[in-house]
Design a protein around this nucleic acid. Structure first.
Length: 803
RNA sequence: GCUGGUGUGGCGGAAUUGGCAGACGCCCGGGACUUAAAAUCCCGUGAGGGCAACCUCGUACCGGUUCGACCCCGGUCACCAGCACCA
């Protein structure tokens, strides 16, 4: 058997698809639509990764199947091209980032086309194109207008290597998400987006979308909603300290308070504090620590008592000491806590170290040994009017009491922080704001958008934390659009996540000069029906774009509350040695090489066959051969000889229909591995039977087409099966025909298989049991035994229980 | 530490969710074709025992429920991922 010439065949069809725009989404909005989306890549100089292929192939299979099912499919591709690697490469090699970007896009595009993806290339978007980022800036101005974009001086995450601030979502275990370098705190004035205003809706609306569970779980976890109460504690200095607690029921157990070292009250009390030097020293020490050091769990608790001021527990009037400690974060709740050492591990550790009283207010634990925290079902003690109540009832009662007495109120808190949105780098969208000494922050007028990135000689980041744009006096100095006075431009740029927060909208109407996209196009195409992308974007891009989309919904730009109806996620492809693919490990597989060696269809097939789509898999170059052989054998069906019979041979009917069903259903759950296995099994049947009919082959090619589009198109043409396979209809199955007339069931004695027998599928229980008993082997084993029970499971087994 | 997930042959992985464990493929062994090799085709392939038909064991480990458990329950271990002093 000869192998087929994949090189010429694949080239031929790719050129034809390009020329004829076979996969362009139609402008006819009366057709049923389907919007398939994959995360657009960052076009790095390394080119495409086999991991990209996995996600793009997965949804390419879905998109191709949908077209065959008669949908008007939008499956677009574009470039998330702003970003640091390009900028760093440009600096190092003294090339403009624009030139680097264009080169990398060309590389990616060539590679993507060589795989035969059915992208609609007429709708390509590029986040660095001024015609595109005009609208990124436009959305920013709408956010600013609504008070959701604001500039604030605050302690932010600073990557020491990128020389740039990071959002909370970009800090992974104290390191930079991109480069892994140390992240330190630095006080800077930053643009922020008020994503916290959407925290509750970002949680609630997860109920309305079809995302895989772990994505929903991780987003909820990240947003971190908790319910509790805020309580005011009077102080001997006159003012109050407000704390947030999720356990107001334990108020009687609060034996001291802790406020964060950055808490504003400390300065106001300076006159009264008798150990101010000690306090100042502690504050400075905390400020010096990196986030990582501060949050290290294993370390011992530290802190300093604020001598000279005491707080009063509102529920019993007891005077209690106040401490500062860095285990209380200024950024969460009110930056102050009531400490209940009996029922909180951190408070317990702190109390033990500083010799503070520990009171049991929920019965059942041993607070001498450890904090009793797992006490939600306990009963209250030492708690005045809460005594003998369940924890649940105590929460209700104390919250009521706090509200009535004006000493507090119930309160919901989130872990989610506002999104730090400015970056001190060159290769990003300029923030379209002018800073005027009289008018403050003034938006650049819409007519002046896009505010283009100025050409510069050097893009080096600065050590003083300023954007490289700050050096361009001509660009920076402008007249205030409002009052005409001398003013300056904002010189920070937007983070990489800006352009990707709305790109899926642009695909709907990519050339629109007057809007993000036309209302008509958005009404038709959105929501995205199926979005696939990486788990690493769950609390970054995916969360950010949901936030922007909800905002755009609120101001009437988009017609849907949520951007994506369905979200799935592919597992990572690891190197052959089980490690993450990377240049330094030397285990990177280059798509160009394997496509050149095996052909695109084989590689596509392998990427789908390699294992569970959602799980991480190891690349195995030897296994590709199996997929290659399968396609060779498919090609060779043309030489097998056709059966004279018309239609499907009766003996093949059941298998054909079952295969249609299996492949159709498996594609819907991205189970390419079992779909392909079913096709392999069917092919083996054709060979075992020594022939195939044209109708059988026609169906087989259609089922295989989404996985291996080139070879199936070629065979379709060679065999004269009519106009191109891409214009055909997906085969349907007949449930009746999937059923088998006779089935093989097993006969068991005490649950162990002892014989197999073939019976009619609809056999009655009594008959099946009787047949089983007639089997010589079963009869033999039954001799001299007492039958206790006889069981029959339809189409499966007979089990005889004996003693 | 908390939360979620995973654990099946030499390997990647199947198994209609309580009903024949190991589909499909890779690797490997044997054979055919060939001067030879590659490719291809055929046969075998969880472990142990038996000439055989067959028998025993086997889904990380220990125990339980059940006529019957990879699947359900209790406990243990290992690995992966997310969060990580969030009061």
């Amino acid at each position: 058997m000869k192998t087929y010439d994949f090189k010429s065949i694949e080239k031929k069809w790719q050129d034809k698809w390009d020329e004829e725009k076979t996969f362009a989404a139609k402008q006819d909005f009366s057709l049923p639509k389907y919007y398939c989306l994959v995360e657009f890549p960052y076009p790095s100089g390394n080119g495409l990764h086999v991991g990209h292929l996995r996600t793009y192939t997965g949804l390419d299979v879905v998109a191709r199947k949908r077209r065959l099912e008669g949908y008007n499919v939008l499956y677009p591709m574009g470039w998330d091209a702003f970003g640091l690697p390009t900028e760093n490469y440009a600096i190092k090699n003294k090339i403009h980032p624009r030139a680097v970007t264009e080169r990398n896009i060309a590389l990616f595009k060539r590679q993507l086309k060589s795989i035969g993806f059915s992208f609609d290339w007429g709708r390509e978007v590029d986040t660095t194109d001024p015609d595109y980022y005009k609208w990124t800036q436009w959305i920013f101005l709408r956010l600013f207008e609504k008070g959701l974009a604001y500039k604030k001086e605050m302690a932010v995450n600073w990557c020491t290597s990128c020389k740039c601030v990071l959002a909370n979502e970009e800090v992974i275990s104290g390191g930079c998400e991109r480069c892994g370098s140390e992240v330190v705190r630095r006080v800077k004035s930053q643009w922020m987006l008020k994503i916290t205003a959407y925290a509750q809706r970002l949680i609630d609306d997860l109920d309305e979308v079809d995302y895989i569970e772990r994505v929903k779980f991780q987003q909820k976890n990240w947003i971190g909603r908790s319910t509790g109460a805020e309580v005011d504690f009077h102080t001997t200095a006159g003012g109050d300290i407000r704390v947030y607690t999720t356990r107001p029921d334990t108020l009687f157990g609060a034996t001291y308070m802790v406020i964060s070292p950055e808490h504003a009250l400390i300065d106001t009390w300076a006159d009264r504090l008798t150990n101010l030097d000690e306090i100042k020293a502690y504050q400075e020490e905390s400020a010096r620590k990196s986030d990582f050091e501060r949050t290290e769990l294993s370390k011992e608790k530290t802190g300093v008592e604020l001598k000279g001021v005491r707080a009063v527990n509102p529920v019993n009037g007891n005077e209690i000491p106040i401490f500062i400690s860095d285990y209380v974060l200024v950024s969460y709740g009110t930056g102050a806590i009531m400490a209940v050492p009996g029922h909180d591990t951190r408070d317990w550790e702190f109390a033990k170290k500083f010799g503070l009283p520990i009171i049991e207010v929920v019965q059942g634990g041993d607070i001498e040994r450890e904090a009793f925290t797992d006490c939600e079902t306990g009963v209250m003690a030492n708690s005045g009017f809460l005594n003998d109540l369940s924890v649940e009832d105590a929460k209700v009662k104390i919250t009521g009491w706090l509200t009535e007495t004006g000493k507090g109120e119930s309160k919901v808190n989130f872990k989610l922080r506002d999104w730090v949105f400015s970056r001190q780098r060159y290769w990003g969208e300029p923030i379209p704001i002018v800073i005027c000494p009289h008018c403050g922050f003034v938006p650049v007028p819409e007519s002046e958008l896009p505010l283009k990135l100025p050409e510069v000689e050097s893009y080096e980041p600065t050590d003083n934390g300023e954007s490289p744009l700050a050096k361009l006096d001509d660009w920076v100095n402008v007249k205030c659009p409002c009052c005409g006075a001398d003013a300056k431009r904002e010189t920070d740029t937007m983070p990489q996540w800006a352009g990707s927060s709305w790109y899926f909208l642009r695909y709907c109407d990519p050339d629109n000069g007057g809007a993000v996209a036309s209302r008509e196009a958005l009404e038709y195409w959105t929501e995205v029906d199926w979005y696939n992308g990486g788990m690493e974007h769950t609390t970054l891009h995916l969360l950010y774009s949901r936030f922007w989309h909800k905002f755009l919904y609120d101001i009437g730009v988009v017609p849907t509350k949520e951007p994506y109806a369905k979200r799935t996620s592919q597992g990572m492809i690891l190197g052959e040695n089980g490690e993450k693919m990377s240049k330094s490990r030397g285990n990177v597989v280059n798509p160009d090489d394997i496509v050149d060696e095996n052909g695109a269809d084989t590689v596509r097939l392998y990427e789908m066959f390699i294992g569970d789509f959602e799980k991480a898999v190891l690349w195995n170059s030897a296994s590709i051969r199996g997929c290659r052989r399968f396609l060779d054998r498919t090609w060779a069906l043309q030489e097998l000889g056709f059966s004279n019979q018309k239609g499907i041979r009766p003996e093949m009917e059941g298998d054909i229909h079952r295969t249609i069903k299996k492949v159709s259903q498996d594609i819907e759950s991205l189970k390419g591995n079992t779909a392909i296995a079913a096709l392999m099994t069917l092919l083996n049947m054709f060979y075992d039977s020594g022939s195939v009919t044209k109708e059988e082959l026609r169906i087989f090619l259609l089922l295989l087409n989404p996985f291996a589009p080139h070879v199936t198109e070629e065979m379709w043409q060679t065999l004269n099966f009519g106009s191109g396979i891409s214009g055909q209809r997906w085969p349907s199955w007949d449930e009746e025909k999937c059923r088998e007339d006779t089935v093989e069931i097993v006969a068991q004695i005490n649950g162990k298989v002892r014989a197999k027998l073939t019976v009619p599928a609809d056999i009655a229980e009594a008959d099946a049991v009787a047949m089983a008993k007639e089997e010589p082997k079963i009869a033999e084993m039954l001799r001299g035994k007492t039958v206790l029970k006889e069981l029959y499971v339809k189409g499966r087994l007979v089990n005889i229980v004996v003693k």
